[in-house]
Amino acid sequence: MIHVSQLTKYYGDYAAVRDVSFDVAAGQVVGFLGPNGAGKSTTMRVLAGFLTATSGTATIAGLDVFWDSVEVRRRIGYMPESCPLYTEMRVNEYLHFRAGIKGVYGRQRKQRIAYVLERCWLNEVERQLIGTLSKGFRQRVGLADALLANPPVLILDEPTAGLDPTQIRSTRNLIRELGRQHTILLSTHILSEVEAACDSVIIIHRGRVAVQSSLEALKTRHGQQEHLVMVLGGLGDPNDFRGVPGVMDLRITPSATPGTTRLRIATSEMAELAPRLCMFALEHHWQLIEMFVDRPSLEDLFVEITEEEEASVGV
């Protein structure tokens, strides 16, 4: 659905995006991830037709964003970062106006406006001036606007920035639901969001694509397995645990509480090993204080990937 190849954008001498290529298949929700200033917004602006690329091409639904800009814009719902709106208009007036310039008229216009008001929980503020709305409501108006013409592709630039935790959760759910009907490219630098809402992820760093893959593949590819972490009280030699069958590797890591030992155990048979370790601990008079499975978070992966990138660039 979205196809970007070797996209480069210079602001003067500064390359905001360098040689970025990626694909988004129809019906996917893709998280576009990267630290601040990585080039996320620039890439999205190029896709939405607000900026033109210095070189490279991008197509949406088979149409070139440069040559068929207006047709492309008909097919996308774009929500810019920080969501600028006409503050002197009322919510329904604004949506009416946006529907007009997006070519939605007549009965359809009424239906779509009613639908997006409902969908984005805007019914209660329908008659309110946009200028008097809180940040969260404004974001929703922006999202409602993106949905107005029922476009096949949604490009959302930081849809949850500046929202409170409940709003973030509901927005996330909404995006999940919308993902059934639309192809969505959403940018963020909040990783838990990507984990919660997206099928796959594109990590962009210093204007380049560092990784593009599904979330699952990303975790396994980066070789970070799950670890079993045990916090033990007692005076024995923790290295005894190496003898338990199934323990592949054991590291003793610093523990937060004094007088306890923290073990980080690598294994391939998580389910079987845990009870065995418990038995072993009891038999050898250890106090088992805590035991849990440590899964690598996207956060760790992200840091790892961006650091790798930096090392390879030689910065």
Binding site: G49, V70, R73, P80, P84, L85, R98
Partner: peptide, 14 residues
């Protein structure tokens, strides 16, 4: 100055 130009220029109008 308010940034609404971005909304306007990404709408399907020339």
């Amino acid at each position: 100055s308010t940034g609404t130009l971005e909304m306007l220029l990404t709408a399907p109008v020339r």
